[in-house]
Design a binder for these strands. Structure first.
Lengths: 194, 194
DNA sequence: TTCATTTTGGAGCGATCGATCTAAAACAAT
DNA sequence: ATTGTTTTAGATCGATCGCTCCAAAATGAA
């Protein structure tokens, strides 16, 4: 037949994701992506078409592998009250990097959403999915008796996701460590759920 | 003496600010800045040194003229409960542009803070100032009897600023209008202050 | 082994980046 | 009017941008 690819597409996407996640879309040049993925431009363009398309795939990869995984791990079952806190905390500690790189979705929302309608629509949908997952967990927590029922689950979930994104923005400028965020999250999320 | 400048530096900073605010640092090229400020590159470099330095000044200009103005107008006196809500609402309606461009501080925090230590330090300080102004207003609201005293003012202020930044991120991907944000803010901020 | 097919690495494309340089222009002082 | 000084507009710099192209390499099929 033909010459086979010598790389795994998932590994390439992972490397590209870490690159975009740390540096943002604009600052991440094709040269950096070549270095990060260990591929030459020919292979990258052959497999992914363009920098923009590669980023699209990267964003979907992140949504599934990072965010989706967290949702399934912390929100889908078990004690909802603790699960929600763990879910939020792990948004600050999901990489082994020394500095906080926050969330690719949040970073992308501020950098690209105003100009790229397709990206904007994808992020809108994804944020909605996160809100929905949170709302379901909140509802479970209310049934389990750990979360107050003064307000409906959707509103509490919305409140939580606003807080989460705000804290992620904040984490970009402060030098707080994981332990600090754990405390902060504990206190502030309690004030919403109790 | 010498040939006088034909432009007002504040007007140039305003034009540059709107440019950076809408498009972000990376996407805003010197060519775009020349068009926006109606100046040629010679004048821009003569007056501001570099794109980076111009952005620094722009950020300080924004902090003083946009954020500072809002703080003085809504947080420094009068009814604190309503002032806080107005303050937050006006973060979503401070420009006549049809699309929401959110907040230059939040945009910059996610785009540049990880790489530019000077910018990061400035944003950290500025976010702290905002928190402080909010805390003072919350304290006044507690004395006025409108805001609960279950938690100390600093914690409530922190909660509010996280919410604000999170909502600003969200505003980049949704198509909510001012009226929608007014409702959302009213409901969610009440749940924090009441 | 030969052929057909696809991937690979890298040279190099035109465009644009931020920044510099220079000569003409525009003033005040003399 | 002449001189001195600064600003102006724009040509132009080298570097880098995203991307294309192509010959060499690497496979399975015949």
């Amino acid at each position: 037949m033909a010459r086979p690819k010598i790389y795994d597409e998932n590994q390439v996407l992972y490397a590209a994701m870490m690159c975009f996640w740390q540096h943002g879309y604009s600052v991440t040049s094709m040269k950096k992506l070549e270095a990060a993925t260990q591929l030459s431009s020919g292979s990258l363009y052959n497999s992914f078409g363009s920098k923009e398309q590669l980023f699209q795939l990267t964003l979907e990869f992140y949504t599934e592998k990072v965010v989706g995984k967290r949702i399934r791990k912390y929100l889908h079952d078990g004690n909802a009250y603790n699960g929600i806190k763990k879910f939020i905390f792990h948004c600050f500690s999901s990489t082994p990097l020394p500095h906080n790189i926050a969330c690719l979705l949040v970073n992308t929302a501020t950098e690209l959403a105003p100009h790229e309608v397709k990206i904007k629509a994808f992020l809108k949908k994804t944020f909605r999915h996160i809100d929905d997952a949170l709302a379901i967990a909140v509802k479970r927590g209310q049934q389990q008796g750990d979360i107050h029922v003064d307000k409906d689950a959707e509103q509490i979930a919305r409140h939580l996701s606003f807080l989460l994104n705000g804290m992620l923005v904040n984490s970009k400028v402060t030098n707080m460590q994981n332990a600090d965020w754990k405390k902060t999250i504990d206190k502030i999320i309690s004030s919403v759920l109790d």
